[in-house]
Every structure is written in C-alpha cells, then in structure tokens.
Design a binder for these strands. Structure first.
Lengths: 204, 204, 204, 204
DNA sequence: AATGAATGAGGTTTCATTCAT
DNA sequence: TATGAATGAAACCTCATTCAT
C-alpha cells in the first residue's frame, strides 16, 4: 500500500495530502465533474493551485488519483474482513455488505464513482484498484462455480455483474431518495436475492 | 407522444433536428461530457451554435433533451411489445431483452446514459421519460408481488433495481470488453438469474 | 493605409481599437515589457482579455501591432511633409525634425520602440513599417550621394545610422533627464552636426 | 576595482562565478529578457537557482550585475588605452574604436545592453559603470570645447550622444545584417564623420 | 551555504454562454 | 431567425520568487 501510495501520490506532505483529500471529496462529490473547479479545491485545501498541477497534471488525474486511493482502502478492508470466513455464501454476503456499508459511510466515493467520474477517460486510463478488487471477486466466484455451488453456465463475470450492478443501482437510488434509510441495513435482504440469482438452484 | 415531443424539441426544421440528433449522438457518446464541445456538434450538424442555444439553452439541456427523446422511443417500443403478453415472467423477460437489444443497437444512448451524462444535474432536473418507464415497470412488478409471484418482502423498487442494475452493468462491461459478443443474445441467461432473484421461491 | 490597417488589426470596432490603443500606450510604455501585463491592458481598455488574444495571439503581437501602427503614422506624416521640398538638406532637416517632434509628442512610442520592445523577437518578426521608413530615407540619401552632396565613401546605410542613432540616443537621454527641455527645439542644432557628418566637406 | 568587484559580485567561488558569467552571456544574449529563464542559467552554470537568488536577488539584478561587470572591463580597457595619447582627436578616435572593437569581440554584451536589457528598470536602478564611462568621456569632451576644438554651442552631452548613438546603431545594424563584415574595421570611416559633426568647422 | 518544493502571477487556450446585428 | 463576435471562466503551463530543510 505504501508502495502504491508513493506511485499514486508523489511526495506531498501527508498533512497537505489530507487536506487535499478532503477538498477533493467535497468539491467533486457535490457537483458534476465539469462544474467542479480546481481553484476551489486548491482554496479549500489551502494548497496552491500550481502545486496541484505539478503533482497531478490535470483535473481528471486529481480525481482519479483520489478515487483510486479510496477504492484501494475499500479493497484493503475487504481483504481484511474476508480472513477466517470459509463459507462461500458468507464470504459473498460479507463482501456485499462491506460495499454497501463503505459507500454509505463514504457517500462522496459512491457519488464520484457512480455519478461524476468522467467514465470514458477513467476506463481508458486507470482501473488499477478496481482491477484488483475485481480479481479478488472473480477468484472467489470461479471457485464457487467449480465447487458446483454457483451457476456454472455463465462467465464468472456475469455473477459479479449482478452483485456490482445491484450495489451501484442501490447506492444511486439511495442518493436519489435522499439517503434516508440505511443502505447497509438492507444488505441481507438484497444479498438473499443476489444469492438466489447466482447460486445453483437446490435440485435441478 | 407527439404532444410530448413538441415540448421536448422546440420548432426546429425536422431536417435540422435530424442532423442535430446525429451530431449529438456522435459527439457526446464518444467523449466525456466536459470534453465534448458544442461547436463540434454545431459544425457536425451544420447549424450555428447560437441556434442550438436558442433552442436548448445549455449544453446540458441539449444532451438531456435528446437522451429523453431516445429513452422515450425505448419506452414506446416497450409499451408496444408488451401488448398481448399476459404472463408476468414473459413480460419481464421481454422488457429485459428490449433494453439490452435497444442499447446494443443504439450504443450511443447507453454510453451517454451510463457513462457521460452529468448525473447530478440530470437527476435534479429531468427524469421525465425515465420516470415514465419506471412507472411502467413498477406497476407490473407490484402486480406480481400482489399475485404472490414476486418476492413481496421488498419494495418493488428493489426488484427493479436488480433488473436495471444488471442492464446497466452488463452494458458497461460489454463496452469495456469492446462490444464483441451480442448483448441481446445473453438476455435469456441473464434474465433467468434475475428471475430467480425476484420471484418467490418455489415452495416456501 | 486603410488597407494596411486591415491587415494589422482585424475587425475590431474602431471605438474598441481606440481604447485598446490607449491602454497599450499606457501600460507598455510605463514599464518593461515583462512587467506589463495583458490583464491590465484589457481592464484599462474595457475589452475582454479573450478578445485581445483572439485578435493578437500574444503579448508580443499586441505590442508589435500597435508600434507598427504608430510607426506607420509617423511614416505617413513624413511622406506628407516632404512634399514640395526640393533641397536635399532641407528634406533631411525636415525628416530629422519630424522624428524628434513625433517622439516628443508621442513619448510612449519612443519609450516602447527604444526601451521596452523585446528586440530579438521584434527584429525577427516584423519590421514592416520600419522597413518602409528606412527605404524612404535610403532613397533620398543615395540620391544625395549620387549628386555629390553626401559622403559617397560609405554605404548609404551608414549615413542613416548617424541620423537614427542620434534620434534614438537623444530621445533616450531626454527621457533619462526627465523630459524637461523640448526635444524638437534642439532639432536644428543637432541636425547641423549631423549634416556636417554626412555631407561632403566643402572643399576636399 | 577589486573593491568594486566585491560589491558587485558577492562571495561566489570564482569558479562558480565564471560558469555563471558564461551562462548569463549565453542565455540572456540569445533571447529577449522575458523569454530567458533563470533555471536555464542555473542549469548551464551548474548552480542551483536558489543560490543565484541568494546572491543576486532577482533576475534583473543578475543581468545588471554582469552587464556592469562587463562595462567595467570596457571602461578599464579604455582608461588603459588612453594613457599616453595627448591629441584630443586621437583620444576620441581611440575611444570610438575601443567600443566597436569591444562589442564586436563581446557581442553578447552589445546584445544585452542594446537589445534585451529591461531599460526602464535598468535606468532607474543602476548605471554605475555607465556613469563612470560617461564621466570619462564628458571630461574629455568638455576640455575639447574649452580649447575651441569641439563645437562649444551644445551641451557636451550632445557631442557624446552623437558618438554613442552611432556606436549603438552601428552595432544593432551589424547584428541585424548577420555580423558579417568587421565592425571595428569601419571605425575610422565612421569616426571621421563623427569628428566632422562634433569638431569646430575649420574656418568659421 | 545549497537545495528542491511550494507559491503566485500571469501567459496561453479553450469553451460555454451572451450580445448585437 | 440565424449568425459571428465578444465575454468570462477556468484549464493549462511556465516562471520568478520564496520557504523550509
């Protein structure tokens, strides 16, 4: 991780990087990418505009860098929490919950990831952390298919798509409805549906 | 519908409107919103950009207007196709397929809707057609719940989220993988999973 | 001239161009080129910053364009005044006076031309009007040499250098001393010296 | 002189100062002041740019300091060469030649002095060495006027202006024409003209 | 004393949007 | 009504200059 951070965030004093992180959260999660404005970020972070440019090179890279950092933290958290869980279903349930919980507690991340990130560029450019997370899932899902627990007739990617699609859509709708009820609390109900979708029917 | 269109698209000579439609498709589906440029749209459409402003008022409204138009066409098509189908499962299967099929044949719409639209503003502003489509679904889903066919323990919105989440995610991944295999052809496999997720388990 | 102006100054409303002219005078003649700042020019002229860039392309071109315009006016004035003067000496005397007089009444021009213009670029790029003026002089000087009135043993350019060198240096020193005495009033005294320098000695 | 140099050039290891001198020559004589860039100077000199700031305080001071140093060397050379010449005309001829010769052999100095120096600031700030040189000349010229050899009807400054104006203009034109013929070799021809301009006409 | 990082200013570009015709 | 010019904002980029080590 430290390694990773070094690559992503060139030598910025941690204190500065922290202020910048907060500023990016704030500015970019509250308006569409094209309306957010780097000068506001700089002002909010108490960092000079030029410094931001020297370190990130562009408005897009600034956002991408922090989104990657945050996704990295979610990934780390997932890895951490999976330890010691053996049952496949419980693993997936945990992963599903961890995502809803994380996005609920860090709505700026969900907002940016699902609502404001300039996707065309993002997809072309960096999916580092996303890839890591995806690999993590796919391994588990593939094993589940091999063991005859999960539906083997589709690419494991499809199983993932059901989970991820629901996470994204649920978050989006939750925001749309004003973030009222807890997102994470719905995890079990939602996951039960996901599980029925991806698991092999009892006797077929 | 005609009524509706009139509201959406102010008096532009149909020939001009057609050229503009194509231009918007092209320009906005191929790059992120903030990179797409109204002058390019105007040039491609052979209209002066000021004319665009007269009619649409802003870059965002221009895009929103056409996305609404296209979503309206999808909705119309769905309404049309649902005629004469009685079975709930077949209705939903058809709707699911219609979406994948439509986005596959009109990838610019999927690209814009799922990838380049400035969501914060879009959500705040217009979901006309989306709302219409959503109401359409929700009615069907609610009826299904009442009839004991669909899982009654969740808001009907959740059932929708599973479908829509998978549509969006599938489209997104399809683009990501380079639009190789047919999207619509996977409809049945995917829908079977969705159906297991949302229907009431055989004997409970 | 009108022709000329069209080339130099693309369609700017004359009223705007006038305000801009004054602003350039002011801003660029009162500080060194690298300290003068386009945003101040724009503000002083009540023109948008962007408009300046659209029309001139760079800080240098903005200055060069106006300097050329002013030099063009001086050239026009010289051409006008030379009419009807036959005697070579009187022609040159007039030219000499016209320059001192012009720079005295338009010190911003002298300041910019002799003190703040980025010469390396200026020389490489545009000497349109200067060339015109120089040709004007050289013709007269060459004729004087052919007629045996002016020193024939040097390139006519050298004769010019004496005149121009003194004009520039006199202006420079005049500014240095605080623009006290009249510059044009010294014209005759100075010219007599120049004349002795460039004319063929009485009996040699 | 040593005293003087100490004032001008603060304690820099002579080796460093030499490298810096060359770098300043190079960088500032080849482009306009505002395009020349201190980092390039630092790089060329193998010094950190911060060191330059410690010693010179600003880009302008850096240039001014070295120009003064070089002008000082020219002045020293002039003082040296004037020794033992009694005849006024020969003194002035020598001085005139020394300047053309010096600028020809050190074109970077001429370039900087006559073409790239930010004059407004230079004039306001430092003319140390120039003043010294000027005083040197003025003394000689005044004496010539008192002795009835030089035109007594103008300020001695004017006599100087003719010389200096021609030096500057000749250098400038020489550069403009590509530094082809030798500048110093034209000294006599030019000086004869200057002499006619400033001396009292044979019998008047 | 010497250095690299940070800063502020301002040149340069590109746009969305508005104005005037 | 349709258009090109003008505008303001902000991205982008380079530097002189300052700060902190």
């Amino acid at each position: 991780m430290t390694e990773n951070k070094k690559t992503l965030l060139p030598a910025l004093r941690p204190e500065v990087s922290n202020r910048l992180e907060k500023a990016v959260m704030d500015v970019f999660s509250h308006s569409d990418f094209h309306r957010a404005n780097i000068r506001d970020v700089a002002k909010a972070a108490g960092v000079s505009f030029t410094t931001i440019y020297k370190h990130f090179g562009s408005k897009e890279q600034l956002v991408f860098t922090y989104v990657n950092l945050w996704l990295g933290r979610l990934t780390d958290r997932i890895i951490d929490h999976l330890q010691g869980i053996e049952d496949l279903k419980e693993k997936l349930r945990k992963v599903f919950w961890l995502q809803l919980d994380y996005y609920e507690r860090h709505p700026y991340l969900g907002r940016m990831l699902f609502m404001t990130l300039p996707m065309a560029t993002w997809m072309a450019d960096k999916t580092f952390e996303q890839k890591k997370m995806v690999h993590l899932y796919l391994e588990v899902l593939k094993k589940g298919q091999e063991e005859g627990i999960l539906n083997p007739r589709v690419r494991s990617g499809v199983l993932l798509d059901i989970m991820m699609g629901l996470v994204q859509r649920s978050f989006f709708m939750w925001v749309q409805r004003g973030c009222k009820e807890s997102l994470a609390e719905q995890s079990n109900v939602l996951f039960d549906m996901v599980w029925r979708a991806i698991s092999v029917p009892e006797k077929e």
